[in-house]
Write a protein that binds this DNA or RNA. Structure first.
Lengths: 253, 253
DNA sequence: ACTTGACCCTGACGCGACGTCAGACTGCAG
DNA sequence: CTGCAGTCTGACGTCGCGTCAGGGTCAAGT
């Protein structure tokens, strides 16, 4: 019965350095269950167990303090962790797959003598935040028909498409800000026209029904990241847009 | 013709901060082609191109100075980079896949009430160096019959098997060190007996012919990592073992 | 012409996650 | 009882930036 392990043993088992284990104890991430009379750390099986979890999340890029809170969360049963880990991994797999695709695409392009523009190359790595959004979005809506439509359409987007869409969106949002600033009622025809333009813009990605548009509008208030996006443009814009969307949908009911 | 970009533009395009670009210039990793009269950085298309490469290798965990040497290598045509990137990516994909497998395995185990030992859990993350070896090994020998045999056999290894094999290897290498230290001629029967034991040990993983054993022995000298492994045990051991292996193979020719 | 606000510059310090000594103690093998 | 490998606790170093501070620049609006 191998009951406990020394730092060195744990280190070699886990493929980390002794210093790392010292560090993990200092920040109270992994405190060995016991000590010998001479002060030697004694790691128990449960400690190794925890360490494996730590290393897992670490490999996925989590900061150590977040790992702490994750693992010390009292209402997180092991199965919960496993499920989370599984989804995290599949997300990473998709990201990697995207990188593979990008590289193969560039290989093809190079072989046929075409040179991609730097913007095109950067698109893969560039949209890191949108990329994270995409991961989560897929977890939420990955099985919806709209999602499939969106990925299908965006796959055919050229660089010019992206630039155009970005410009259109910016311009539209600018007019919304102006409308809000000059006190336009979200229920007014001017506002609902803007909302309808918004819905049309989404049509670039997938067919957005009025009902779905309502849901989106609600989410702009419910999800703080969307809220922040709009509130950063103008305070009250998230609410205003949501109301305009609903008014527009009412009109078309 | 959008000829040059400001830091901010590059930053948003690439999804990094301005500070990062400043940093990359400080360490001479990415120096913008030009500056305006006022001292503003002006990034050209080639700079963006280089940045995308940088971000690629960075995402795969390369330290920045290594990226420098990689990208500044004069005899590395773009196609070379693309090939390297592709292989790196597929390697990572396999690693991730292994993690996925491990997690699913643990999920299964948990559902059936069996609890894996911490050692088993750590094996996935623990062997990080061996893991990297494995990646490269697969790139080198991934299509050989021996590789298939090896993965097939190791897949059936239990924890006890690993411990036993490790112990056996350590013990054998200890006797080799002793033989070398006491001046045993690598061509002597004592040395060839050790070499034969070494070959038998490899038999744990795959059937190792004398010819293949020769190749392995040569590689211990050719590949610096293997060399280091043996030289760390005793200076001259790599050469000694290689000679003993060849002498043993000669004997059985 | 003037202001304003967004963007840019150069230091310089801070931080997370360890690496890497130094100096001293411990445990076990021969 | 003498090595020598393993362990201990500070403490400083490193890498890849984040985050101010203090000051110049640029395009737009008035």
């Amino acid at each position: 019965m191998n009951r406990s392990y020394t730092v060195g043993q744990v280190a070699t088992l886990a493929g980390v350095t002794v210093r790392t284990l010292h560090h993990y104890e200092q920040i109270a991430l992994l405190v060995p269950g016991d000590r010998t009379a001479a002060g030697y750390r004694q790691y128990a099986a449960a400690d190794l167990d925890r360490l494996s979890q730590i290393l897992f999340y670490r490999e996925l890029g989590f900061p150590l303090d977040e790992i702490s809170t994750l693992l010390d969360d009292p209402d997180a049963d092991p199965a919960e962790h496993l499920r989370r880990q599984h989804t995290l991994l599949t997300a990473r797999l998709q990201r990697l797959q995207a990188m593979v695709d990008a590289v193969t695409k560039e290989m093809k392009a190079q072989m046929s003598g075409i040179n991609l523009t730097p913007e095109e190359k950067l698109e893969i790595f560039g949209d890191h935040l949108p990329e994270e959004y995409a991961e989560e979005a897929q977890q939420r809506w990955g099985d919806s028909a709209e999602w499939a439509q969106s990925t299908e359409r965006t796959a055919r987007f050229t660089k010019e498409d992206w630039i155009r869409i970005k410009a259109e969106t910016d311009e539209l949002e600018g007019r919304m800000v102006a409308a809000l600033a000059s006190g336009v009622d979200p229920a007014s025809t001017e506002a609902t026209a803007l909302a309808e333009e918004h819905r049309a813009g989404i049509g670039n990605f997938y067919d957005c029904s009025f009902h779905m548009h309502r849901c989106l509008g609600d989410m702009y208030l419910a999800d703080e990241r969307f809220t922040k996006y709009y509130e950063d443009k103008a305070t009250g814009l998230a609410q205003w847009l949501r109301d305009a969307i609903h008014a527009n949908a009412d009109q078309h009911a």
